[in-house]
Each structure stands twice: as C-alpha cells, then as structure tokens.
Amino acid sequence: MIDTPYILQAKNLTKIYGENVIFKDISLDVHKGETIVIIGPSGTGKSTLLRCLNLLTPVNSGQIFLEGEEITAHGVDHDQVRQKIGMVFQNFLLFNHLTALGNVMIGLTKVKKMPPEKAKQKALHELERVGLADRAHHYPAQLSGGQQQRVAIARALAMDPLVMLFDEPTSALDPELIGEVLGVMEQLAHEHMTMLVVTHEMGFAREVADRIIFMEKGSIVEQGSPEDLFERPQHARTREFLGKISELYGKKEKK
C-alpha cells in the first residue's frame, strides 16, 4: 500500500457518451472516514461519476486511485477492485431469487469464498447492523422498499469495503420510508465509514456530510463544508439550486 491520506482519489476524469459530455475534468480526493454528499440538478453526471468510480462504467480519460494504487491502470482486476468499493443503487437491485440473508451471503460465499457457516454469521451480523435480523428469511418481494434498501446496504457492507457509494438511495422510496434508510447511513457515518453519497436529501447533507460537492453540467461548481455551502455559497448557481431544492424539501415536509 502506498502511503497516502486519501482512500479514493480521482484525477481529471472525463466521460463522454457519443456526442454527450457527461462530465469533464473532474478531480476528487476522498479522505478516510469522510462523508461526502454530492448534490446538483438531475442529469449532471453525478450517478455516472459514482459508476465510473467503481469501474462499472469506463471513463474516457483520467485516473482513479484506491488507497494510492491506480485502478484505472491497464491489467487491474476490476472484480477485485469492486469488492473494496460498496455500491447502493437508487432502485435497490436486490437479487430477487434470494432471501435477505442470501443476498448478503452470496458475495461472501461466491466472491470471497468464505465457508457457508461463517458467511451466514457475518451476513446475520450485517443485517443486524441495518436492523433487519428478523427479516433474514424474507424474499425481496416480501420486504418494503426501505427494508430492501437496508438489505442492499448490508449486502455492500458485508464485503468490508473501503468506501461506500450511494446513488440516490432514497429517491425511489415513499416519503415515510426514507427516514429508516437515512438513519442507517447516518449511523455508518458515525462509525467513520468512508461514504460518497449522491442525494437530494438536504437535511441529511447538512447534518451528516463532512463536505458537500455541488455539481452541475458535468463539472464541480463548488465544494465545502455544509455551513460554507448552505450559509455562504460562493456561486450564484449554487444559491439558485439550494433555493429551489429547499422549497421542494419544505413542501415535502408539509405533506
């Protein structure tokens, strides 16, 4: 391992789909234990950025380093890398044919080749962490959206990742189910899990984030602590976006 203060580092990442520039020249340093929230309007490349960071989507140019080692280099085993970067999706994507326990276990038994009994112990422990030990034998279709997303978090945690990526983890949830998922994430932040979260939940961003990044049109417009960004945004676009989003958030609250 190379000595570096950063767990995850991105240098000059650019992603282009055909004619569309999704994001351009993005650089990002993530410290160990840091919780970063990425905000910004839809379609500004936030989700694609997360997918690029764990190599689910290739970048057109730029480098990504995990614990100082370049994972975008030629010959790097992507499957090895992804074990170390957990990912949680907007639409949960639990494996439909497996129980909650099975979902959490399968990475341990098939990827990490852990003996089944040991894997089961660990999986149960992870389910407990997200408060779902009693739902271990339920299938995804038997769980609420919030429960499914918590299982998805447990599934990612079970792999003991160095960093967790959350791609709008609460966007697909009914409002009353959002809290339980955010609760789990907040708890993870307190346990100093390194997290990169794309979300529109400004309350969570303000309360939990160490740093907030505002992205728009494929570029990082501004970043800083929640206080700096929410109280003293430097850019007009940031102010405008935050204004709109808190209006929306406020409406949601009233409902």
């Binding site: 764990n54 499957d79 992804r82 990912m87 994507l93 990827v111 998805a152 990612a156 792999m159």
Partner: peptide, 9 residues
Amino acid sequence: TAARAIGMS
C-alpha cells in the same frame, strides 16, 4: 450490475 458491484465476475 448489482452482481458486478459486489465483485462478481
């Protein structure tokens, strides 16, 4: 995608 994300080939 989900399977690849936990490191499966």
